[in-house]
Amino acid sequence: MSFDRIDWVQIGHAALDTLAMLGGALFFTVLFGLPLGVILFLTGRGQFLQQGVIYGALSFVLNILRSVPFIILLIVLMPVTTVLTGTSLGVRGVIPPLVVGTTAFFARLVETALREVDRGVIDASRAMGGTVGQIVFRALLPEALPGIIAGITVTAIVLVDYTAMSGAIGGGGIGDLAIRYGYQRFQTEVMVVTVILLIVLVQLLQAAGNRLVLHFSRK
Protein backbone atom coordinates (compact mmCIF):
# COMPACT_ATOMS: atom_id res chain seq x y z
CA MET A 1 0.00 0.00 0.00
CA SER A 2 1.40 3.34 -0.94
CA PHE A 3 -0.39 6.56 -0.10
CA ASP A 4 1.68 8.66 -2.59
CA ARG A 5 -0.43 7.25 -5.42
CA ILE A 6 -3.55 8.86 -4.03
CA ASP A 7 -4.96 11.79 -5.97
CA TRP A 8 -5.93 14.09 -3.09
CA VAL A 9 -7.58 16.64 -5.38
CA GLN A 10 -9.86 13.94 -6.67
CA ILE A 11 -10.66 12.87 -3.14
CA GLY A 12 -11.38 16.48 -2.22
CA HIS A 13 -13.84 16.77 -5.11
CA ALA A 14 -15.45 13.49 -4.16
CA ALA A 15 -15.82 14.66 -0.57
CA LEU A 16 -17.50 17.88 -1.74
CA ASP A 17 -19.79 15.86 -3.98
CA THR A 18 -20.79 13.71 -1.01
CA LEU A 19 -21.51 16.81 1.05
CA ALA A 20 -23.57 18.28 -1.82
CA MET A 21 -25.60 15.07 -2.16
CA LEU A 22 -26.02 14.91 1.59
CA GLY A 23 -27.07 18.56 1.89
CA GLY A 24 -29.42 18.51 -1.09
CA ALA A 25 -31.04 15.21 -0.18
CA LEU A 26 -31.38 16.17 3.48
CA PHE A 27 -33.03 19.46 2.54
CA PHE A 28 -35.67 17.80 0.37
CA THR A 29 -36.13 14.91 2.81
CA VAL A 30 -36.98 17.33 5.62
CA LEU A 31 -39.09 19.44 3.27
CA PHE A 32 -41.28 16.47 2.31
CA GLY A 33 -40.89 14.27 5.38
CA LEU A 34 -41.78 16.84 8.02
CA PRO A 35 -45.30 17.58 6.71
CA LEU A 36 -45.87 13.88 6.06
CA GLY A 37 -44.84 13.09 9.64
CA VAL A 38 -47.16 15.80 10.96
CA ILE A 39 -50.08 14.44 8.89
CA LEU A 40 -49.31 10.90 10.07
CA PHE A 41 -49.34 12.08 13.66
CA LEU A 42 -52.48 14.22 13.47
CA THR A 43 -54.55 11.60 11.65
CA GLY A 44 -53.30 8.77 13.84
CA ARG A 45 -55.42 6.84 16.28
CA GLY A 46 -56.51 8.80 19.32
CA GLN A 47 -55.31 12.13 17.95
CA PHE A 48 -57.62 15.08 17.55
CA LEU A 49 -57.81 14.86 13.76
CA GLN A 50 -58.10 11.08 13.75
CA GLN A 51 -58.72 9.96 10.14
CA GLY A 52 -58.35 6.21 9.75
CA VAL A 53 -58.46 6.21 5.96
CA ILE A 54 -55.86 8.93 5.40
CA TYR A 55 -53.57 7.48 8.05
CA GLY A 56 -53.96 3.95 6.66
CA ALA A 57 -53.29 4.97 3.06
CA LEU A 58 -50.29 7.15 3.91
CA SER A 59 -48.89 4.54 6.23
CA PHE A 60 -49.24 1.87 3.53
CA VAL A 61 -47.38 3.91 0.91
CA LEU A 62 -44.60 4.88 3.30
CA ASN A 63 -44.17 1.25 4.34
CA ILE A 64 -43.81 0.19 0.71
CA LEU A 65 -41.13 2.83 0.14
CA ARG A 66 -39.30 1.70 3.24
CA SER A 67 -39.42 -1.95 2.31
CA VAL A 68 -37.69 -1.52 -1.08
CA PRO A 69 -33.92 -2.00 -0.63
CA PHE A 70 -32.15 1.23 -1.50
CA ILE A 71 -29.93 -0.26 -4.21
CA ILE A 72 -33.07 -1.45 -6.03
CA LEU A 73 -34.80 1.90 -5.51
CA LEU A 74 -31.81 3.54 -7.21
CA ILE A 75 -32.32 1.46 -10.31
CA VAL A 76 -36.13 1.54 -10.37
CA LEU A 77 -36.19 5.32 -10.09
CA MET A 78 -33.72 5.96 -12.93
CA PRO A 79 -36.38 7.01 -15.50
CA VAL A 80 -38.09 9.28 -12.98
CA THR A 81 -34.78 10.83 -12.01
CA THR A 82 -33.92 11.47 -15.67
CA VAL A 83 -37.21 13.30 -16.15
CA LEU A 84 -36.70 15.36 -12.98
CA THR A 85 -33.03 16.31 -13.28
CA GLY A 86 -32.10 15.44 -16.82
CA THR A 87 -29.63 12.78 -15.76
CA SER A 88 -29.47 9.67 -13.64
CA LEU A 89 -25.77 10.10 -12.96
CA GLY A 90 -23.64 12.18 -10.62
CA VAL A 91 -24.76 14.36 -7.76
CA ARG A 92 -27.96 15.58 -9.43
CA GLY A 93 -28.97 12.15 -10.61
CA VAL A 94 -28.72 10.68 -7.15
CA ILE A 95 -30.61 13.23 -5.08
CA PRO A 96 -34.14 12.11 -6.14
CA PRO A 97 -33.66 8.43 -5.17
CA LEU A 98 -31.94 9.53 -1.96
CA VAL A 99 -34.92 11.72 -1.10
CA VAL A 100 -37.41 8.97 -1.92
CA GLY A 101 -35.36 6.48 0.09
CA THR A 102 -35.20 8.55 3.28
CA THR A 103 -38.40 10.62 3.26
CA ALA A 104 -40.57 7.74 4.45
CA PHE A 105 -38.02 6.89 7.13
CA PHE A 106 -37.82 10.49 8.29
CA ALA A 107 -41.63 10.91 8.28
CA ARG A 108 -41.86 7.99 10.73
CA LEU A 109 -39.20 9.56 12.95
CA VAL A 110 -41.19 12.82 12.97
CA GLU A 111 -44.36 10.94 13.86
CA THR A 112 -42.56 9.27 16.77
CA ALA A 113 -41.07 12.58 17.97
CA LEU A 114 -44.53 14.19 17.94
CA ARG A 115 -45.99 11.31 19.90
CA GLU A 116 -43.42 12.01 22.59
CA VAL A 117 -44.96 15.44 23.14
CA ASP A 118 -47.08 15.57 26.27
CA ARG A 119 -50.71 15.11 25.17
CA GLY A 120 -51.70 17.68 27.73
CA VAL A 121 -49.98 20.36 25.67
CA ILE A 122 -52.34 19.70 22.76
CA ASP A 123 -55.27 19.62 25.14
CA ALA A 124 -54.28 22.95 26.64
CA SER A 125 -53.75 24.53 23.22
CA ARG A 126 -57.16 23.35 22.06
CA ALA A 127 -58.77 24.62 25.26
CA MET A 128 -57.15 28.02 24.60
CA GLY A 129 -58.91 28.19 21.25
CA GLY A 130 -55.90 27.40 19.07
CA THR A 131 -56.49 26.49 15.42
CA VAL A 132 -54.96 23.31 14.02
CA GLY A 133 -52.23 25.37 12.32
CA GLN A 134 -51.44 27.27 15.50
CA ILE A 135 -51.30 24.07 17.51
CA VAL A 136 -48.92 22.46 15.00
CA PHE A 137 -46.59 25.40 14.44
CA ARG A 138 -46.64 27.09 17.82
CA ALA A 139 -47.00 24.16 20.20
CA LEU A 140 -46.33 20.73 18.68
CA LEU A 141 -43.28 21.43 16.50
CA PRO A 142 -41.45 23.61 19.06
CA GLU A 143 -42.12 21.00 21.76
CA ALA A 144 -40.93 18.16 19.51
CA LEU A 145 -37.91 20.09 18.20
CA PRO A 146 -35.23 18.11 20.07
CA GLY A 147 -36.79 14.84 18.86
CA ILE A 148 -37.02 16.12 15.30
CA ILE A 149 -33.38 17.25 15.34
CA ALA A 150 -32.38 13.82 16.60
CA GLY A 151 -34.41 12.38 13.69
CA ILE A 152 -32.63 14.65 11.19
CA THR A 153 -29.29 13.47 12.58
CA VAL A 154 -30.17 9.82 12.17
CA THR A 155 -31.50 10.50 8.68
CA ALA A 156 -28.32 12.38 7.71
CA ILE A 157 -26.23 9.40 8.74
CA VAL A 158 -28.45 7.04 6.75
CA LEU A 159 -27.99 9.43 3.81
CA VAL A 160 -24.19 9.23 4.08
CA ASP A 161 -24.59 5.46 3.90
CA TYR A 162 -26.89 5.75 0.86
CA THR A 163 -24.68 8.24 -1.01
CA ALA A 164 -21.82 5.77 -0.73
CA MET A 165 -24.08 3.02 -2.04
CA SER A 166 -25.18 5.15 -4.97
CA GLY A 167 -21.57 5.04 -6.19
CA ALA A 168 -22.37 1.55 -7.40
CA ILE A 169 -24.68 2.86 -10.14
CA GLY A 170 -22.80 5.96 -11.16
CA GLY A 171 -23.58 8.42 -8.43
CA GLY A 172 -20.72 10.67 -7.44
CA GLY A 173 -18.84 11.24 -4.24
CA ILE A 174 -16.72 9.23 -1.90
CA GLY A 175 -18.63 6.01 -2.43
CA ASP A 176 -18.11 6.26 -6.17
CA LEU A 177 -14.37 6.66 -5.59
CA ALA A 178 -14.25 3.71 -3.25
CA ILE A 179 -15.97 1.49 -5.78
CA ARG A 180 -14.12 2.60 -8.90
CA TYR A 181 -10.63 2.85 -7.42
CA GLY A 182 -10.68 0.99 -4.14
CA TYR A 183 -12.63 -2.00 -5.42
CA GLN A 184 -12.43 -2.22 -9.20
CA ARG A 185 -8.75 -1.11 -9.46
CA PHE A 186 -7.57 -2.77 -6.26
CA GLN A 187 -6.29 0.52 -4.80
CA THR A 188 -6.67 -0.46 -1.17
CA GLU A 189 -5.29 2.89 0.01
CA VAL A 190 -8.19 4.72 -1.66
CA MET A 191 -10.58 2.39 0.10
CA VAL A 192 -8.91 3.10 3.44
CA VAL A 193 -9.02 6.87 2.93
CA THR A 194 -12.67 6.86 1.84
CA VAL A 195 -13.72 4.72 4.79
CA ILE A 196 -11.88 7.03 7.17
CA LEU A 197 -13.59 10.05 5.57
CA LEU A 198 -16.99 8.41 5.97
CA ILE A 199 -16.27 7.57 9.61
CA VAL A 200 -15.21 11.15 10.32
CA LEU A 201 -18.29 12.52 8.56
CA VAL A 202 -20.66 10.31 10.53
CA GLN A 203 -18.95 11.18 13.82
CA LEU A 204 -19.19 14.89 13.06
CA LEU A 205 -22.86 14.65 12.12
CA GLN A 206 -23.71 12.75 15.28
CA ALA A 207 -21.78 15.14 17.50
CA ALA A 208 -23.41 18.19 15.90
CA GLY A 209 -26.85 16.59 16.21
CA ASN A 210 -26.30 15.77 19.87
CA ARG A 211 -25.23 19.34 20.60
CA LEU A 212 -28.28 20.79 18.91
CA VAL A 213 -30.62 18.40 20.71
CA LEU A 214 -29.08 19.39 24.03
CA HIS A 215 -29.31 23.06 23.16
CA PHE A 216 -33.02 22.87 22.43
CA SER A 217 -34.00 20.49 25.23
CA ARG A 218 -35.95 22.20 28.00
CA LYS A 219 -37.38 19.16 29.72
Binding site: D118, V121, D123, A124, P142, E143, L145, F216
Partner: peptide, 10 residues
Protein backbone atom coordinates in the same frame (compact mmCIF):
# COMPACT_ATOMS: atom_id res chain seq x y z
CA UNK B 1 -55.00 21.15 34.37
CA UNK B 2 -53.84 18.58 36.90
CA UNK B 3 -50.46 18.17 35.23
CA UNK B 4 -50.18 21.87 34.34
CA UNK B 5 -49.69 21.17 30.60
CA UNK B 6 -47.20 23.98 30.17
CA UNK B 7 -45.07 24.21 27.04
CA UNK B 8 -41.68 22.97 28.12
CA UNK B 9 -39.86 24.76 25.28
CA UNK B 10 -41.21 28.16 26.31
Amino acid sequence: FQHFNLLSAK
